[in-house]
Structures are given as structure tokens and as C-alpha cells.
């Protein structure tokens, strides 16, 4: 299993992500955004967290214009697996690979803390190793994590089982930190090969460091 991790100016989670996948036994490659092709043999492309282009204009907006993004679009359209974490989720919605948009947090603050999440759907590679309604403890760290989608788009997400994760408290009750529609923290596309979430599974890989609840998300892509 080989994982390609995209790097823009301002990306800052590429090496954490690389470490997380390497700890699961994956080969990894950092993909510079100025490249115009995705190397042969890559089984998963991750758009990692950070502040691509300083979040100028809108989070993820300038990154979507990078040469590698055309190749990524083609890769995804051909069924290639793509995971966007935090800024990566913002980039994927800006590109139109995932529906909706990420707005400024409702309370306007940058939020950085562990948060509980509920697994809504396991009918996909990303969350297939969890049980439905499982509660996870995974860090969030974002300023623009307020997921927005219109009513029709939301109905389509539910109809196609594309809502993956929701923000909750430790008892599984809805606890919405940023104003996201229906407290949604992560979604996938209709064909279930493109995934995006605001929380950082790559920062929840060691119980010694607070939580290892992110491991099985990344493991879901292995031997799938």
C-alpha cells in the first residue's frame, strides 16, 4: 500500500500524516503541488491539514489552482481514493470533489482541542472497521470548519449514506463546536472514493498522546 501526501506552501500536517501511515506499514511519498502528475502505484492520495497559501482569499481556494490538482481530479474521477483532512477537506470542497463548503466557525474562534465524534456510516472504506454509532475522541484544530450545504444537498447526503461523522459529547449527544449543518464533521462523495473530515485522525494514533481512535480510520484503507 502506497500513500501519496500532497504538499502546498503552508501545509503543516504532511509529515504527521506520513508518520501515521508509515506506522501502519505503508510506503509514503510527499507530492509537491507543482508536479502535474500523480506517480504510478499510489493507492491513496491524502490532502493533509495546514494553511495552504496562508488561507488567503478562502481556505483551500488558491490551493485548488495548483497544477497537481488537475491530476488529482482525474485520479478521483477514475475511482482513485482521496482523503482530505482539515485544510484538505476545505481544498476538496473548493475543487468540487466533495459537496458543500467550510465557512468560518460560528463563534469566530480558532478551536483546537480533542472532540468526540459519532460514526454515522460504516458503509465505506474509511470507516468500515468501526461499528455504527461508535464514539471516537479525535483532535480538531480549525478556524473554518463550519460545514455548510443547502437543504437539497443535505437530503442527498443522507439519501446516499454520505454523512460519515458528527460532532458529539462523550455520551454521544450532539455537541456542535463550529455551527456545522447537522453537526457534520465528515462526509464522502456519492461514489465513496473521496473522503473529507475536519478532525485530525493522524493526531490520534497513540494512546500515550491522548487517543489512538484515529488508527482504524487510516487502517480502513489497507487491504480494502
Amino acid at each position: 500500500m502506497k500513500v501519496g501526501i500532497i504538499q502546498f506552501p503552508g501545509t503543516n500536517c504532511e509529515y504527521d500524516t506520513q508518520h501515521a501511515f508509515a506506522s501502519l506499514g505503508c510506503d509514503t511519498e510527499i507530492l509537491w503541488h507543482k508536479n502535474d502528475t500523480i506517480s504510478e502505484g499510489i493507492d491513496l492520495v491524502v490532502v493533509p491539514g495546514g494553511f495552504s497559501y496562508g488561507d488567503y482569499l478562502r481556505s483551500g481556494a488558491i490551493a485548488k489552482m495548483s497544477p497537481l490538482m488537475k491530476a488529482l481530479k482525474l485520479y478521483a474521477d477514475n475511482g482513485g481514493k482521496v482523503l482530505g483532512i482539515c485544510n484538505g477537506f476545505q481544498v476538496l470542497t473548493e475543487m468540487g470533489l466533495l459537496p458543500g463548503a467550510l465557512k468560518r466557525n460560528e463563534g469566530l474562534h480558532f478551536i483546537s482541542r480533542h472532540h468526540h465524534l459519532k460514526v454515522i456510516s460504516t458503509n465505506n472504506e474509511f470507516l468500515r472497521l468501526y461499528t455504527k454509532n461508535a464514539l471516537l475522541n479525535i483532535p480538531i484544530a480549525h478556524h473554518d470548519g463550519n460545514f455548510y450545504i443547502d437543504e437539497q444537498g443535505l437530503a442527498e447526503l443522507y439519501a446516499n449514506d454520505q454523512v460519515l461523522l458528527k460532532y458529539t459529547d462523550e455520551n454521544g449527544e450532539i455537541d456542535n463546536p463550529n455551527g456545522s449543518v447537522d453537526s457534520i464533521a465528515g462526509i464522502c462523495n456519492k461514489s465513496k472514493n473521496v473522503f473529507g473530515l475536519m478532525p485530525h485522525p493522524e493526531r490520534a494514533m497513540e494512546s500515550l498522546l491522548g487517543s489512538d481512535d484515529g488508527c482504524r480510520m487510516l487502517e480502513g484503507f489497507l487491504h480494502a
Binding site: L57, R58, A61, I62, K64, M65, T93, E94, G100, A101, K103, Y148, I149
Partner: peptide, 8 residues
């Protein structure tokens, strides 16, 4: 293409 995100 870039200056506005017409979703929002």
C-alpha cells in the same frame, strides 16, 4: 473559478 465560492 476563484474569487467567489458560489456554494455560499
Amino acid at each position: 473559478e476563484l474569487l467567489a465560492n458560489t456554494v455560499i
